[in-house]
Design a protein around this nucleic acid. Sequence first.
DNA 1: AAAGGCGGCAACCGCATCACG
DNA 2: CCGTGATGCGGTTGCCGCCTT
Length: 325
Amino acid sequence: MGRSPVPPSSNQSNLKKGAWTTEEDQQLINYIQNHGHGSWRSLPKLAGLNRCGKSCRLRWTNYLRPDIKRGKFSQEEENMILHLHSILGNKWSTIATRLPGRTDNEIKNYWNTHMKKKLLQSGIDPMTHQPRTDLFSCLPQLLVLANIKELLEHNQLAQNLQYFNHFLQPNTGLSTLLNRTSSIPLFQEENLNFVSEFPVLEDDQESEEIRQFPVGTSNVTQPLHQEVSIMNLETSNDFKHVGHCQGQSAFTSVNSSPSISAVTWNPIPPLIDNTTTTTTNNSGSLESGSTISYSGGDGGASSYNWPEFLFEDSFKLDQTLLEMS
DNA sequence: AAAGGCGGCAACCGCATCACG
DNA sequence: CCGTGATGCGGTTGCCGCCTT
């Protein structure tokens, strides 16, 4: 389907390109107001313009058309673009039909220069509208792992590092934690029982419960759009719940008493905004309904903090390792 | 004050699709 | 049904003005 592009004819090479002058604009406006645009190809000649028809059409539809709304995009327009893009993707012309006075080109530019950036800063992939899974988005997690390792070393548990390293092997604890940051399950179901390899007290019934907890399966991650109304992503508090683990800490401690069925895993470990408060229960795990966010607001510098429980549980990991040794 | 970097946006390019003879 | 011209669309480029050093 389609046709190969028309090779430029000799007279086309003399056609003017680049920015339009006010005189050219006025010529085009006058002609279209008096005659309509008719055939775009013949228009330039009839209007006395040394431009190709395509250039005239673009100038008219993107800039000179009288019904064009200029100026900053409103919050409602922004929300609409976000919503429509999550459904339609880069169908700028279709999106433009839902935003009176805005052109596809304008929306496309606004998306590429403003909204895309905001989403990336929020840890959201602008194409999929889901949490990012690339290396940079995992950087905070990697840094925490580095901190945990350092912690172990400083607590003179170097002898247990071999065990720690075991955790970093595929199909085991921390690598599986990292794996959770991806909405795509990396490991097969038969290899998921990392917790069963975690040493627990044999008489601990709750620990047994944890041992049976499957991790890394596709049903424990949820696509963003299933949980969050895209429409008010930026202004709504819903945005603050994107990607957090509801009901229980990401590190399930052997000493805590989790209700496994109540746990909902989301792709990205939680980050706590300084401006919000979190509550912890007696076991140090995060209460359901705590407010956790990537960043919302106006795309400004966001303050990421890792939740206290993550570090608290790393100490419990220490204790467990001590008990083992 | 000058130079370089960067972001925003208008315009261009190439391909896809539609329409018509 | 096929070929061709016209138009639409999305990705990309390059200019221009502002900001930083």
